[in-house]
Every structure is written in C-alpha cells, then in structure tokens.
Design a protein around this nucleic acid. Structure first.
Lengths: 218, 218
DNA sequence: ACTGACTTTCAAAAGTTTCTGAAACTTCCG
DNA sequence: CGGAAGTTTCAGAAACTTTTGAAAGTCAGT
C-alpha cells in the first residue's frame, strides 16, 4: 500500500518562484536583503516537502497522487492559481493539471475564481482546514460509505425471510448465523454512518464534539 | 477511485460448498430437505455478494481487493479455513492466498489455528466487529497517520526559527503565512490523532464514546 | 538426515491506474 | 464571423500493482 520510485526530478526546479504570493519585499535596510532571499528559498523547500507529504498521504488513502499534490499546492499558495501556474510548479502536463483540478472541484475543496481583465480561470483552495475536512468526509461518505450500506442491505435480503422463507432463520442454524454476522456488520456501519453525519453537520457541531472529546482526555 | 471489469467468472462456481460450516442437517422430516438445500444456496449467494462488496470497499480505501475478499470470506465462515479452502472458494492462486493471509495476519485481524492431527495451518478471522475495526484503525494510524505527523513536524522545521532565523517569522509575511498554514493543518492532524487514540483504546472506551454520541442525537 | 506435507518466495505476466501530448471544443472579443 | 486564448477530452504510453505458477524453503516424524 506504499512504495513508489518517482523517476521524475521532483527537486531540480528550474524556474524562480512564479506565483506564490510574492510579498512586497520592503527591504528596510540592505542587510535584510540576503536573509529575505534565503527565506523565500526556505518557503519553497517547505512547500515542496508539504506537497510531497500530501501526495503520499493521498495515495495511501486512495486519492491519486497528483490530485493531492495539486490540492496541497493550492492550499499553501493561499491565493488563486491558474492551470499554467500549476503545470509549471508541479511539472505536470496540461491534461493532468486539468483533470486534477476538475476532480478537486467535484470534491468541493476548490473554487473557481475569475480575475477581471484576465480570461484565464484561477482556482483557490479552501483555507479553513476544518471546513476542508468536513467537505472531504461528506464526499467520501456519499461515494463510499452510503453505497456500501445500500449493498449490504441488498445482501442481507438475499438470506432474509422473503428469499429463504420465514422459517429458515429459525430452523436452519447456518442461515441464522450468517444473518447474525451480516447484522453485526451492518449495525457497525450504520453507527459509522451516523457518526459521519455528526461530523459533517454544518456550524461546527462536529468541531465541538471533537473538541469536547479531546478536552475530556487531556 | 472506482471501476473495474473483472473478466474472471466470479459467479460460475463449479465446486459444491467446500468448508463453510456445514451445519448438521437434522432433517426432522423429509419435506424440509428441499428448503434446506435452497437455504444453503442462498447462503452461498449471500456470501459471494458480501465478499464482492467487501473487496470493492477495500479497493476504494486503498486495500488490495483480494486481501479484502479473503478477509470477508473468513469473517463469514466463522470457523478457521486453510489455504486450500480459500483458494478453492475464491478461485485464486496459492501464492495470492498466501500473501493475502500474511498481510491480514500482519494487520492483526486474523489468527493462526492448528488442528490436532492435521499439519495444515488454519486461519480464523476476528468475529467481534468492534474489535476488528479497532485493530484496523490502530494499524492505519500507525502506518499512515503517525508517519505523516512526523513528516509534517520536519516540514515545519524547514521554515522554523532554527532554519530561517528567529526574526523571519515576524519580519517576512510570507514566512509567517506559510507557518500559519502548516500549523493549522498540524493542529487538525494532531486532533485526529488523539481522537483515533480514543477509539483505539481497549475496553470499549471508543465504543462507549461512540454510543454516547449516537445517543445524544437519535 | 531423509521424506513428504505444507508454506513462502519470487520473477515474470496480467491487469489497472495515471499521465501525456495533441486534437477538439468553447468562449470572448474585435 | 474569424480567430486568439483558454479548457477539456482522449487514445496511447508509462508507471505501478497484483496475480500466478513454479521453485525453494521449512519442519515434524521416522
């Protein structure tokens, strides 16, 4: 569930910082100039590292690496970036950038931004970490937990009274045990589902619950 | 994150129920015999369905399909099965069965069982659903959350006072903002980490917490 | 220390996912 | 309308993961 040996040169950047919120230098004195430059380099390194970590984490949770990397980049950038910025910074193709951005929009963690006098589309990542994870959880539940629950109900019906007769569960121990096992699993999954709803619910309910839990312990 | 068009014949079984806890028939009367047979068929179908669902769910959470299928089979079987049982039932090779079983043992959701007078090894799945998911969560945390946390700390250091000078965070807004973003993420991940510990903790603490949460709402 | 029953390993094959580059498509503006 | 600027799509390529089958390894009993 891990491993990867990227042959791409992820470290050998060739372009100077392209779009990452160049803060007005304000070099009050000449001495600070050098330290300012090295700070920018440090930020760049920090960003690269974070992007790599995020991509790695994505893959281990079933998210395409590049998609996660794009997300990390936009989160760190803070400001909206366009497709070309993303391509240049991450060294990926236009198609790849486009697809990743589209997926992230579908997940709801990115928003489109238009700048006046510029026909390009810009993309901005959700900056509120809590809201971001709520969104992710909501999507994951919708796409992966809910369908499983539906399937499990169908599965349960296959050995339910309607399929196998109303007596079977009582008279055939194997049927009974099978149904028991399904029910135990179903019960758990339903609880997870309900819990997820709690965390998803807007207006910080999940937040408060979690904080409360944390408080009780520490 | 979905899709798959298995070309394997997942439905066309050729062998009769090999090892799935054949319950003593006890055909009190001849009339029940037919319904007993059809019940067995229903169980078989139900198992196949569940196994398929579980495999699908596994892949979407980054677990190899076959590994999840083996797990599902053993959970449903209830009793210990040997490698050959698994191979026959799932139509997979010996190597594949062996590797899946080993992984599941590593995850801690399976235990080895020896039957006297039989040199084969048998494998039994955890039957307590709560304990099973606690084990899974513990492993996932160990393998995927904790390393990410460590990496994030390192990442944070790249733009910390030691790397970029004690003044930078104050004097360079870009550095400050970058560190803020990292800290917000780190704070969230730490909370998740602590929460996970709660659910992992033995003796049903996670259980009670979850049940409590659920109770408050329903 | 040999045998037979069983398990693990491993290199190659099969299968799946992700990325790329280029073509097709949209949209806006003169 | 024509075309420049930008975005999406898609077939093929590359990368990665999983499965297989067979060989190598292990081990209890003799």
């Amino acid at each position: 569930m891990k491993k990867r040996t990227r042959t791409k040169k992820q470290e050998t950047r060739k372009t100077p910082p392209p779009a990452t919120a160049a803060p007005t230098p304000t070099p009050s004195d000449a001495i600070n100039c050098a330290s300012w430059v090295s700070s920018q380099e440090a930020i760049r390194k920090g960003q690269d590292r974070f992007i790599a970590i995020w991509g790695e984490m994505g893959t281990s949770w079933g998210i395409p690496r590049t998609m996660a990397e794009v997300h990390a980049l936009l989160y760190l950038a803070g400001e909206p970036l366009c497709t070309d910025d993303i391509m240049d910074r991450l060294h990926i193709s236009r198609g790849s950038a486009s697809m990743s951005v589209r997926s992230l929009l579908d997940w709801g963690v990115l928003s489109r931004v238009h700048k006046r006098g510029d026909r390009k589309e810009y993309f901005q990542a959700e900056q509120d970490v809590w809201r971001m994870f709520r969104t992710i959880l909501r999507e994951r539940k919708r796409r992966e937990i809910d369908p499983v629950l539906m399937s499990l109900y169908e599965c349960r019906d296959l050995t339910g009274p309607d399929s196998v007769g109303p007596e079977a569960d009582r008279s055939n121990p194997a049927v009974h045990e099978h149904n028991e096992r399904l029910d135990r699993m179903l019960e758990f999954m339903e609880l997870v589902d309900t819990l997820a709803d709690q965390f998803i619910s807007p207006a910080g309910k999940g937040l408060r619950v979690a904080a409360g839990l944390l408080g009780k312990v520490m």
